[in-house]
Computed example of a mutant assay.
Amino acid sequence: MSRIDAHHHLWRTDQGYTWLDEPSLAPIRRDFTPADLSAELAANGIDRTVLVEGGRCDPGEAAILLAHALATPQIAGVVAWADPSDPALARTIAGYRGLPGGHLLVGIRSQVQGETDPGYLDRPAVRAGLAVIGSHGLAFDLVIQADQLPAAARCARALPAVRFVLDHLGKPPIRGSGFTSWAAGLVDLAACPNVTAKLSGLTTEADWGSWSVDELRPYVSKAFEVFGVDRLMFGSDWPVCTLAGGYRAWVAALRSMVPDEARDAVFGGVAARAYHLGLE
């Protein structure tokens, strides 16, 4: 069984990642390359990965990511950016698949977390685009805030043929209050059998310098309660996780929270199935 990291990024600062200009993100405002990734994987016993769009939000990024995947044996799949409401979405996906490395396209993501309209995922144009994504055999990554979980659940129920992957457990409010409302939203979304979720991005939702396993455990435990062993997967969210302890710290923390009998699924099997990686 391959050990799979289902969520990481690569970027160069001269390629349009303007969100890195936020002052607090100075530690990750540098290039992160396939060579850097390979070193992290080797140090942590991870065999394969899924490379996810990095918030640049334009179609040109796909060619860069697919080229990285083609040249980097550890990268088993790419989740590229596309706008689900774009009438030309099918043509965009076909264009991605025609690029070098296009056969490694396994999913699409857009930055839903940045949408101010709480009904964004209810829009007919968005749902039509998500159906197009599903019809092309691709998963759709839900990068959303905790208060968007109810809309995501409505969307997943309305589109049972689409495979949805929840990133970062819906960004729970670990640094504040709101566990109860986040958990209720997670329960609702997990009731949709076409949704899997990533155990990723939690350390950066906590205090970057002082988080603890005990602080994160209730969120991971709730995820296991509602999704079960067979719909949860490990993701590093590297290099963003370097803001809050780094790759090794998150792997160690998560391993301590995952039951022994669930490790093969969480650290490989679920990602292979969710993204149709062909690695099981």
Rank of each mutant, 00 (worst) to 15 (best):
R123C: 00
L232K: 04
A161P: 04
A26C: 04
L138H: 00
A184T: 11
R248V: 12
P172N: 13
R175K: 15
I64Q: 08
A272K: 10
A249Y: 00
G107Y: 13
S221N: 10
Y275V: 05
G246F: 01
A156T: 00
L189G: 03
A265Q: 13
L37E: 01
S135Y: 06
Y96K: 04
T18P: 08
W182Q: 06
L189C: 03
F224T: 09
E115D: 08
G209V: 10
L51R: 00
I4R: 00
D47N: 09
R157A: 13
F140H: 15
A62P: 15
P73A: 11
A90R: 15
L254M: 07
I108K: 03
E261N: 14
S110W: 15
A271G: 07
W238Y: 00
D207W: 12
I133E: 08
E115F: 05
V213Y: 02
E261P: 02
G55L: 07
L105A: 03
E280T: 13
Q111V: 15
Q15G: 00
L104G: 12
V79L: 03
R255P: 06
L66V: 09
R12T: 01
D58G: 15
I64W: 09
A62V: 10
L189T: 02
G101Q: 12
D237W: 06
H103N: 15
A262T: 11
G269V: 15
V162L: 09
F267N: 05
C192N: 04
A223S: 14
L243G: 06
L130M: 13
L166M: 11
P84D: 01
G228T: 09
E22R: 14
A191L: 09
G107L: 13
E40G: 08
M233Y: 11
F32R: 00
L149T: 08
W182A: 09
T33L: 07
H9K: 02
W238S: 02
A197I: 06
D260Y: 12
V143P: 04
A67F: 02
T49V: 07
A69E: 01
S212T: 15
L254P: 03
L37R: 01
S24P: 03
L202G: 09
G107D: 10
A67L: 03
G114N: 13
A125G: 09
V270M: 05
A272S: 15
G245C: 04
D83T: 14
Q148D: 05
E261H: 12
I144K: 05
P218E: 02
P160E: 06
V79A: 02
N44H: 09
A161V: 04
A262R: 13
L20C: 02
G269F: 10
M233H: 12
H7D: 09
A274E: 03
I4T: 00
T180C: 06
D264I: 11
I108M: 07
V187M: 10
G77S: 02
L189N: 01
D264C: 14
V266M: 13
M257Y: 02
L243P: 07
A125H: 09
I46R: 00
D214Y: 10
G209D: 15
G77I: 03
G54H: 07
E280N: 14
A90P: 07
V251T: 12
V112E: 06
L104Q: 13
A244W: 01
